[in-house]
Amino acid sequence: MSQFIQDLGKSTRTSFTKLGRSTYFLLQTISGIFSVLPRPRLLLNQMYSVGVLSFLIITISGLFVGMVLGLQGYYTLSDFGAEETLGVMVAASLVRELGPVVSALLFAGRAGSALTAEIGLMKATEQLSGMEMMAVDPVKRIISPRFLAGLISMPLLAGLFSAVGIIGGQIIGSGLLGVDEGAYWSQMQASIDFHDDIINGFIKSIVFGFVTSWIALFEGYDAIPTSEGVSRATTRTVVNSAFSILGLDFILTALMFGDH
């Protein structure tokens, strides 16, 4: 019994210490952003590897998710004779939920894991230590540009996901199942609200980008500098990001759409 209490205390302490370290790390990262701004080159390079390289997976996934929504939505809506509102259903699901959430999950798997592995290996091969000895702050030089790139890329990728998804839904809905194309677009235009739907979805994706980049970079920076340590850190990035994204999505949805 006392062993159990000891273990409980130990693991609680470990997780709180880690939370403290990660918060301190986040503050350092954010304050490092000011030294990234005068050097847009650093940011652009990271935007490329974090954002542009995630382009393909986001586009293809968005297309398929939109196509599935088109199919499922059509069969459900046609029961009520409401298949003309397919556009609304597809767009609302994507812009409010699936766009931000699924693209963030994909982003964590594609870009987050890569960031953790990269930073972890830089640590293992003493590159971070070497930078410190060259009087270059690795947080400012390596972490902050990546963080900012993640923060900017995530909403853009979510927007892309939703846009491609809507086209996917249209291909299936009006191309294959015969929903009127004009109705698809005009119903969508009439019902999707800029503030309630698009801005809220945008806020969600910024929050997810923030959290995912933070987790990925911290896990890499905090990784035990061995091959096993880096592999475990990469796993933690994907798992913790997924939990955080889904948990935060619930909270944000409740806050945003709760009073309707």
Binding site: M122, T125, E126, Q127, S129, G130, E132, M133, M134, A135
Partner: peptide, 17 residues
Amino acid sequence: DLRKRLGMLFQSGALLT
């Protein structure tokens, strides 16, 4: 500032890959 006046050669080289 002090570190700018020190050079350190790591065992692995620690080159930026």
